Amino acid sequence: NKASVVANQLIPINTALTLIMMKAEVVTPMGIPAEEIPKLVGMQVNRAVPLGTTLMPDMVKNYE
């Protein structure tokens, strides 16, 4: 099973992601793959992301 990106803390709306906000975890359903973490740094979330939430592509602005 591949790990996904999971919020390590509450991430407020429009916050630019940093490494300490994210962790890799095997979850179902899968979200953004953990190997994308370096690419996510500096990208903004378009909603508040609660602690423990799996990051999905539609939660990150301009994620492709």
Rank of each mutant, 00 (worst) to 15 (best):
M22P: 00
M22D: 00
Q44M: 13
G31V: 04
A48H: 15
N62P: 05
I37T: 08
K23C: 02
I32F: 04
V49K: 00
Y63M: 04
M30L: 09
N1W: 13
Y63G: 06
I11M: 09
D58Q: 11
S4K: 02
T28I: 08
A3C: 03
N62A: 15
K2R: 10
N8C: 03
V27N: 05
D58N: 13
L19F: 05
E36Y: 08
E36N: 10
V60N: 01
M30I: 12
M22S: 01
G42P: 00
L19R: 06
I20C: 03
T53M: 07
K23T: 07
P57W: 09
L10M: 13
M30C: 03
T28V: 12
K23P: 00
L51E: 15
N46G: 12
P33F: 03
K61R: 05
I13Q: 13
L55Q: 01
T28G: 10
E35I: 08
G42H: 08
K39D: 06
N14D: 14
M30H: 11
V26I: 05
P29L: 14
N14I: 06
P38S: 15
V49Y: 02
K23Q: 15
I20E: 13
M43R: 14
T15M: 13
V26C: 03
V5T: 06
K39C: 02
A24G: 10
I13N: 13
N62G: 10
E35A: 04
L17F: 04
A16Y: 10
K39V: 09
I20T: 14
S4N: 02
L19W: 09
N62K: 07
V6N: 03
A3Y: 13
A24N: 05
A7Q: 00
M21V: 09
T53S: 14
P57L: 07
K2C: 03
V60A: 01
L40G: 00
S4I: 02
Q44K: 04
T15N: 07
P38F: 09
P50L: 06
P12Q: 10
R47L: 05
L19V: 14
M59D: 04
E25S: 11
R47I: 12
L10P: 05
V5L: 03
A3H: 04
M22Y: 01
K61T: 07
A7Y: 01
K23R: 15
A7M: 15
Y63S: 11
T53I: 12
G42K: 08
V26N: 04
V6R: 14
V26Y: 14
M59T: 05
P12G: 07
R47W: 04
N8Y: 14
E36L: 07
V6D: 00
P29D: 07
T53A: 05
E35F: 05
Q9W: 14
V60W: 03
P57T: 10
K39S: 05
V6W: 02
A48V: 15
E25Q: 06
T28M: 08
M56N: 07
R47D: 11
T18P: 01
E36Q: 15
T53H: 15
K39A: 15
T28N: 14
T53D: 06
T15V: 08
A3G: 15
I11S: 01
V6L: 10
M56C: 02
A3Q: 08
A16G: 03
A48F: 10
I37S: 10
L10N: 13
A34R: 04
N14L: 05
A24W: 05
S4A: 06
I37W: 02
G52C: 03
M22T: 03
M21C: 02
K2Y: 15
P50Q: 14
P57Q: 12
E25F: 05
N1M: 13
L55V: 12
L55H: 01
T53W: 15
N14C: 03
V49I: 14
V27R: 13
T28C: 04
P33E: 04
T15H: 10
T54N: 08
M30T: 12
V5W: 01
L40W: 02
V41C: 02
A3L: 14
E64R: 02
M21L: 10
V27D: 03
P38L: 09
P50A: 08
Q44H: 15
A34I: 10
N14K: 07
I32W: 02
V49L: 15
L10Q: 14
A24H: 05
M56A: 08
A34T: 08
L55S: 01
T28A: 15
P38M: 03
M43W: 10
T28D: 09
V6Y: 04
A24P: 13
V49F: 02
I11D: 00
L10Y: 14
K2N: 15
P38D: 14
M56S: 10
